[in-house]
Design a protein around this nucleic acid. Structure first.
Length: 601
RNA sequence: CGGGCUGUAGCGCAGCUUGGUUAGCGCGUUUGACUGGGGGUCAAAAGGUCGGCGGUUCGAAUCCGCCCAGCCCGACCA
């Protein structure tokens, strides 16, 4: 198709609004793709909407190819829908709520597990109707505590969400089969979008195993850390990433043992401050974080009430790993409750294993080396030096009911790979654009969605769910691909493939040529924008770079006199290359086709 | 939700400390002329509830109070 600059709306800005900071936010605003209406709420102007539509179209094609059926669910959801799964409480303030004239409360859908389960519950009752995979591309709402970075974290955003339904996990028609197919479809989607990305293992769903993957666009500005092992291809996010075999310490008495000494460290709960004050390094310190064991209604009271996890000062405790090693559902302890129980929050030491009843201490392998260590002193504003595991804790170390050693910290760059001996983990930053996981029966059980199996037994349906942030993908692409002058779109997502720039818009020869070229390209399936504004060349070139259309054809006097036009890719420097007019369309078509991955446009 | 900060023309900002003509500047916009290969020059013009409400005062963009909106850091993030 062909558009004219003067007949569409592309309000480019020389200066970015002060509130925008991240590259995608600044550039999408400056290049006239989006406008802000409120915090985390944006207009998609014509360029932005074209990109958004292209992402959505690629997603749609791949979902259809993967055997999913498109539908559309309401955004306005009666709050009662959430009562069964308790997600109104889980979501808390994240859920947007509206009240109607009768006082009834509805939520604006943040995701659609409940409504889809409700919908299918009404029309699927036999195993013969399964498996089923349905999806929608729908606006979602989340009342984010802090919307930020433009489209990357909005309060209103476009998302593709798919849900699959099965009677088994394994075998033909099972959840795993669809999960694998969706994984492959996601790889296709992001490849076709022209993105550099990594699929990483994420926190497991209720079924266990590698039941969840996140798709992360590689971008320096990403909020998430991705760990990768080059040798094995293993990749995971920080929450999930395992660490390969490490040297386990002996928890012994240090050879050069020092006496335990208490030092005054006023108002210094932080590792860094204490290390500086005591002229030691965080690697020589122990950090102990207290978690509360969550009792489950209807189950016997757990043997422990608290879990204290000790890691080296330069490491971070990983809550999921604390959960696995302890075997308990835990949450970071409420500060007041923990203080009341006897924990000097901010100054806790592993000695709490004896001092506070019902405490299980988890020691990370790196923290299990011989002392002496610097640790909290279990009283406010004090630390101890010369801490020695064997001497301070003694017998508890040998009682697995009181102390366990294992992996309880976040992986870091340089840690041993869990999949390839001798290989080390590397880190990168990413932006999460897709997430797939095996849900299991959480929603179907909570909402009573059962089908009759071949043995005439009622069985809760097994579910999977699969999300892609469509608007976020658009922004992530800009984060991944831009330069000082503006956006650099990959061909598949570009709002237009080609920008034709007649230097003098009112020159009849140039106008006619622009017309002819664009018609020829359009007939080949190319999207063309003609900059027909009566602007100075500098303005047109600056805007061309800013909006980031991949191919630029410049129509100027000198080149035309020589029977040529200038052909330039956005990624090329300079004015571009002279191409005879007769070959211009063909050359452009080839570039567009190549940029689309060889697929017909 | 904690910490820091900002609201003055479409965008970027000054003015506020020390209250006092008609609230300025740059960019953008409009009109005209000259120009025409990386945001050009000249001339003229349009455009403002100074975030809102209340207070102090003869007088408030400026001082005080409350509220609202927004940004950044952190917490949080299916």
């Amino acid at each position: 198709m062909v558009s004219r600059w003067t007949r569409t709306l592309i309000p480019t800005l020389r200066e970015a609004p002060a509130e925008a900071e991240s590259p995608s936010h600044v550039l999408l605003l400056r290049a006239g793709y989006i406008r802000k209406l409120g915090a985390g709420i944006y207009d998609y102007l014509p360029l932005g909407y074209r990109v958004l539509s292209k992402v959505a179209q690629i997603v749609r094609q791949e979902m259809n190819a993967a055997g999913a059926a498109e539908l559309s669910l309401p955004v306005l959801l009666p709050i009662e829908l959430y009562s069964g799964t308790r997600r109104d409480a889980d979501y808390g303030d994240l859920l947007f709520k509206v009240t109607d004239r009768k006082g009834a409360v509805a939520a604006l859908g943040p995701t659609h597990e409940e409504p889809i389960t409700e919908a299918l519950k009404g029309c699927v009752s036999s195993y013969k109707q399964l498996p089923l995979n349905v999806y929608q591309i729908q606006t979602k709402f989340r009342d984010e505590a802090r919307p930020r970075s433009g489209l990357l974290r909005g309060r209103e955003f476009l998302m593709k969400d798919a849900y699959s339904f099965h009677t088994s996990v394994d075998g033909p028609g099972g959840l795993s089969e669809t999960y694998d197919r969706m994984y492959a479809a996601y790889v296709s989607v992001f490849r076709r979008c022209g993105l550099r990305f990594t699929a990483v293992e994420a926190e497991s769903g209720p079924i266990g195993g590698s039941a969840s993957h996140e798709f992360m666009v590689d971008a320096e500005s990403g909020e998430d850390t991705v760990l990768k092992c080059a040798a094995s291809g293993y990749a995971a996010n920080v929450e999930k990433c395992e660490i390969g075999a490490r040297q386990r310490g002996s928890l012994g008495l240090a050879a050069g043992a020092q006496p335990l000494a208490e030092v005054h460290t006023p108002a210094m709960p932080g590792i860094e401050a204490v290390a500086a004050h005591l002229k030691t390094a965080p690697q020589r310190m122990l950090k102990t974080i207290v978690f509360a064991v969550l009792g489950r209604a209807g189950e016997p009271a757990p043997a422990h009430r608290w879990v204290a996890a000790t890691v080296r000062g330069d490491h971070e405790v990983n809550e999921g790993k604390v959960r696995s090693l302890s075997g308990y559902a835990v949450a970071l302890a409420d500060e007041r409750a923990a203080r009341a129980a006897g924990f000097a929050i901010g100054y806790v030491s592993p000695r709490v294993v004896g001092a506070v009843p019902g405490t299980l201490v988890l020691i990370d392998e790196d923290a299990s080396a011989d002392g002496p260590w610097v640790s909290g002193a279990d009283k406010a504003d004090h630390h101890v030096t010369g801490f020695d595991w064997r001497r301070e804790i003694g017998g508890a170390l040998d009682d697995p009911g009181r102390v366990r050693v294992g992996d309880v910290r976040n992986a870091m760059a340089g840690d041993p790979s869990p999949r390839a001996a001798g290989s080390r983990l590397e880190t990168g930053r990413g932006i999460e654009v897709g997430h797939i996981f095996k849900l299991g029966t959480k929603y179907s059980e909570a909402m009573g969605f059962r089908v009759l199996d071949e043995k005439q037994q009622q069985r809760p349906v097994i579910m999977g769910c699969y999300g892609i942030g469509v608007s976020r993908t658009m922004a992530a692409c800009v984060e991944m691909s831009h330069d000082a002058a503006g956006i650099v779109w990959p061909m598949p997502l570009a709002p237009y493939h080609v920008l034709i720039v007649p230097m003098k818009a009112e020159d009849p020869q140039q106008a006619a040529l622009a017309q002819r070229l664009s018609a020829e390209l359009a007939s080949g399936g190319v999207d063309v924008l003609i900059d027909d504004r009566d602007e100075r060349p500098g303005v047109k070139f600056k805007d061309a770079d800013l909006i980031g259309v991949p191919v630029r054809l410049t129509l100027g006097d000198k080149a035309l006199a020589a029977g040529s036009v200038e052909f330039k890719l956005r990624t090329d420097a300079g004015k571009g290359e002279l191409v005879p007019i007769a070959q211009a369309a063909e050359r452009t078509l080839a570039a567009v086709t190549a940029g689309l991955g060889g697929a017909p446009a």
